[in-house]
Nucleic acid binder design. Structure first.
Lengths: 227, 227
DNA sequence: TTAACAATTTAGCCGATGTCAAACAAATCC
DNA sequence: GGATTTGTTTGACATCGGCTAAATTGTTAA
């Protein structure tokens, strides 16, 4: 059975959600509904279809879990999406805050031939512009190691690993501060009670609110090089 | 009212058909059905929708005619499609016989921002890889002047203007013969009774069947430069 | 001029994907 | 432990875009 565009999007989103909660393999339908900007019933019914097509298992009222076939579909979609994003940024010169919607649409549409070419022209990137890992053509997804900036120890050096937001204003702000994946910085201090964080980036001092800092995931230089 | 993807494709196809029959402004529903690879009733109903949305006029049993709004939609779509094709060929290095389907899909999806960038990166081309003119951003479609190779006078020099087929085998063959838009050649002779044509291209002699020659449209060097 | 044929439209169906409202299950609180 | 809140599913419906079969219109030929 072949998955429609819509089915692929649901599968990809389910995978992403699961990837972000490594402890729990079950994905709730409400989280899917929220991410997909769609009503809960729409998700439930799509889940039925996906279950019938063999892409996932469903424990009613508990959540879903992708099967191997489901993961394959999801990863193919995620790969296309992230490579398109990479291409738009690296080859076509757009800013990462501009390209999400186009990449979303194009990810459903581009052929393997095109994706492979984009991969090549982008220099076979390992991560998308947001720092998310790009699944390999044969469907393997690296597991990155990183932590919310809002939780790591102070007075250390870190590297930005992932920027976990699609809000283009936040993305633009991070760009302005030079806080992009791969960037090295020093975490100077963090004020208590969800207070602001102080960072040293390229010799400049910046302050970030606790919530905003939570959308940045960081790791050590060595951990960053692993993927 | 905004046109769905499907509506845009119908409008674009209707425009293309009308463009290829300059004498008759009415497009038959059956020609649309054939081009879109869709049943006749599907066309009739879509025509109703498009009429209600103000994109065309419909004289039942006679044919349709785009309104100004309809032409605008059509041209925007055609522009996207042809610029994507140009981009895939010029910037990404694909052959023109490979890119039609991808360009079709992407044409429905890419934003203005992306199209403008592709336009720029392709060097603001005037024609798509098949030689079809690219509508300007403000919705003007140049009218090219050319004639079927199967009908023009012999013993003259011509320039390939358009290659009117999507058959990738034929396109590949034309590539191999160097018969691409902009190419100059000499029409040596044409055998009677729909017989083969003899061409001189880059000092090489080629023979084309009458029907195949009919898919090539040619003109003089000066006429080619007009668009 | 009428009969036959071709093109077009109408009618009724289907599946995919969305909605809202109501029923139902699970978790939580007093 | 029963009541309430929250999350999930079911039901009934809409729209889009496709289909086939049947009716209708326009054209052509006898």
């Amino acid at each position: 059975m072949t998955a429609t565009d819509s089915m692929q999007e649901y599968l990809a989103e389910a995978f992403r959600i699961a990837y972000y909660q490594p402890d729990n393999p079950y994905v709730s339908t409400s989280s899917l509904a929220e991410e997909m900007q769609v009503s809960a019933p729409a998700v439930t019914r799509m889940v039925q279809r996906l279950k019938n097509a063999g892409f996932l298992q469903h424990a009613p009222y508990r959540g879903i879990r992708l099967t191997e076939a489901g993961e394959r579909e999801a990863l193919a979609n995620i790969r296309r999406h992230r490579l398109v994003e990479r291409f738009l940024v690296d080859v076509m010169g757009f800013g990462w805050h501009e390209v999400h919607d186009d990449a979303d649409d194009m990810g459903l549409v581009v052929s393997d031939m095109l994706v492979d070419k984009m991969d090549e022209m982008s220099g076979f990137p390992k991560r998308c512009p947001h720092g998310e890992p790009i699944p390999s053509a044969d469907g393997l997804m690296p597991r990155v190691i990183d932590y919310p900036l809002s939780e790591v120890a102070v007075e250390r050096d870190y590297v930005i690993s992932r920027v976990h937001t699609h809000d283009s204003h936040k993305l633009r702000y991070f760009s302005e501060l030079n806080l992009e994946p791969g960037k090295r910085f020093h975490l100077v201090m963090r004020a208590p009670f969800k207070g602001p964080l102080q960072l040293q980036v390229d010799g400049q001092t910046h302050f970030l609110g606790h919530e905003l800092a939570g959308t940045l995931r960081v790791c050590s230089e060595e951990e960053y090089q692993l993927v």
